[in-house]
Computed example of a mutant assay.
Amino acid sequence: MTGAALRQLLYRAGVGALVLASHIAIAAPDNNIYFAGVAYTSIASNIAEVYPHLSVELAGDGAATLNKRIKSLVQSQALPESIVFDALGSIKDASKATAMALALDGETSSIERVGNVYKLRTEISAEALFFNFKEKQVLGGFPFTIDYIDVSATPPSDGDIQKAFHDMVVGAAGRHDIADEFVNVLTRSRAPDAANKHLRVTLSTLGPKAVEYIHQVSPKLDQAAFTQEVAREFGKYLGANQQLSILPYSSNQAIGSSMAARFVEGESFNLKVPDADYEIHLNVAGFKKFEQSRSNVDALLLYGAFVDVDVLEPLSQKIYFSQRIKQGASRTIPVTQASVDDWAASRDTLLSLFDNFTKAMSDSGSAWLKSGLSDNRQAHDQFSSLEELVKSCR
């Protein structure tokens, strides 16, 4: 990387530092998008803690190997944008200094015993992040998630978990990896226009009942990290289901819409996050779980998730949508199962809620609306207003 080419690059408000794990390409025709490499969207000093497995995979030659795979995939197919990888130089002659990175937002893993086997689930949250490095401003991102479930007869070791992340990063026979999914996102994405209207989750909180439930089923859960995950996941489903670019979540409005970032080379930069035209506030109000029935063979468990969603225009404080949405899900387990990962089931129910809610934004006839949204005139009128708002952001 030429340090002069990216002085004062900045990233998301209140979330953390952007750590690029590759070189940025910066000399090509004006209509090109410059690939900036792999990025961590977390505080630079906290990378090993937030990404304990991904940071291992991307150390050494790991990032370079991933970049080569992305380059090979991009160059093997036609994309809406022209992506440039290996042109180095100055951005002074570029009137459209638009760059794009594979930004890694988080990783998770969980182990559950099901009968006589153990289920390992690993997940990576990421996004195709576009930004203008001449104006020093984020343009928007297209979030996505890749996950895997492996089953074994013995409890997975730390090495097994690391191997699962290794396969998700570098690829394995018969498996879809992060480079595949990243390029798949690029096949349906264009660099957002800075003049477009912007949507952004600016508040993510947990209600008292949600906190109480988490204390019961997952007392070691980092609640602060979970609220950030809630914001990211909602943005992911909104972006994917409505074909929208989403601004990065801001978890701390007090410091404004900018934050210092540190690159792998150790240099520090700044990148502006534009103000949102419309803000989204999320409050996870609570979860429920109860056993509906039991036989000699299995038991039927029901899970519920409840979220308060507010969508408003920050300047006028006009409220477009302010309602509680809900989702139910069932799970059948054998009576011989030694333990149940209630938190994994509850989290999946929450994600299903986000998926169904954001899909319904372009499908007013969705069957989900009958159970997921209050059956009154105000709720449905507000949902119609929300549909029109989303259309205006495309």
Rank of each mutant, 00 (worst) to 15 (best):
A260Y: 09
A254M: 07
A195N: 15
S218F: 08
L206V: 11
A210W: 01
M168V: 03
A224E: 09
G207Q: 06
P156V: 12
I161Q: 03
A173G: 07
L221A: 11
H166I: 02
S152Y: 07
V264Q: 14
A194Q: 11
A195W: 07
R188A: 12
D177T: 03
N196I: 11
V185I: 13
F234H: 00
E265T: 15
S218R: 06
F144M: 05
K236C: 02
I246Q: 00
I214N: 05
H198T: 09
P248C: 05
A173S: 13
V201C: 01
Q223R: 10
P192I: 11
E212C: 07
F226W: 09
K163R: 15
R188D: 05
P248H: 02
T227D: 03
K197A: 08
Q253R: 12
M168C: 04
M259W: 10
V230K: 04
I146S: 01
V211Y: 00
S258Y: 07
V264T: 15
Q242T: 13
I214F: 05
D193W: 03
S251Q: 09
V217H: 08
R200I: 08
K197I: 06
A164Y: 01
A194W: 10
E233L: 07
P192T: 12
K220R: 12
V151G: 12
Y249D: 01
A225F: 12
G266N: 10
T205A: 14
A261Y: 06
A164N: 04
M259E: 14
V264G: 12
D167L: 05
A260R: 11
F234D: 03
L244M: 00
L221T: 11
A195G: 12
V217F: 14
A224M: 10
A153G: 09
K209S: 15
L186G: 00
Y213E: 14
A172F: 03
I178E: 00
V183Y: 00
S258D: 10
P156Q: 07
G174F: 02
K236S: 03
P155S: 14
D147V: 06
V170K: 05
V185Q: 07
D150Y: 13
Y237D: 02
E229N: 07
D222Y: 06
A231M: 00
Q228G: 08
V185M: 09
Q162W: 03
A231K: 00
E181S: 12
A260W: 12
